[in-house]
């Protein structure tokens, strides 16, 4: 186990170094508009917009090829912010209320360790190796659901994230809504 950790740590360091170096020396001239649009997108990387990730969708929007109401995880709020950013009228959006935030959970007793979900996860939030049980790092799961279809034994389920004292929010004062003119 220790050697595994050391190897992983070493690999991590090396890759981190490469990434740092690559980001400096291969810095592509980014289109600032694309970056701004990408910043508004939720980075779920789910592909429900019809593009292979948030960045490609942002590029399509920037080129004027895509409508801005194609991102379900962003929801109405996302459309509103996108419209504000681009200075356009928010387009009609049906069924765009975002689902409650969920994360994927692997049933650890059923998992056969096939690594298919690891390959499908856009943000590397699944750990595990071949023939070993896999597990999802809750903090990093974006809830994109991309790992569900590849699993041959259907052992991944989406679980709604429960509210706790840290994520609890003060509600909109209701008595005002009744009276709001």
């Amino acid at each position: 186990m220790l050697s595994a950790i050391l190897v992983m740590a070493a690999i991590g360091l090396v890759l981190g170094g490469i990434l740092g170096w690559a980001s400096v020396s291969y810095r592509v001239e980014e289109d600032p508009l694309v970056e701004k649009i990408d910043a508004v997108l939720p980075q779920t990387q789910c592909g429900q917009c019809g593009y292979p990730g948030c960045k490609p969708y942002a590029e399509a929007i920037a080129k004027g090829e895509a409508e801005i109401n194609k991102c379900p995880p962003g929801g109405l709020e996302g459309i509103k912010r996108m419209a504000e950013l681009l200075g356009v009228e928010p387009p009609a959006a049906e069924g765009m209320e975002p689902k409650p935030k969920s994360i994927a959970v692997i049933d650890e007793n059923t998992c056969i360790g096939c690594t298919l979900c690891i390959q499908s996860c856009p943000v590397d939030a699944i750990i595990g190796a071949a023939k070993q049980m896999h597990t999802i790092i809750a903090d990093q799961c974006t809830g994109c659901e991309l790992c569900l279809p590849p699993c041959p034994v259907d052992c991944i389920a989406m679980v709604v994230v429960k509210e706790d004292v840290t994520t609890w929010k003060w509600r909109y004062p209701v008595h005002m809504m009744k009276r709001a003119a």
Partner: peptide, 9 residues
Amino acid sequence: GVTPKNTDH
């Protein structure tokens, strides 16, 4: 030894 490399930082 190990395949995944997603546990750094």
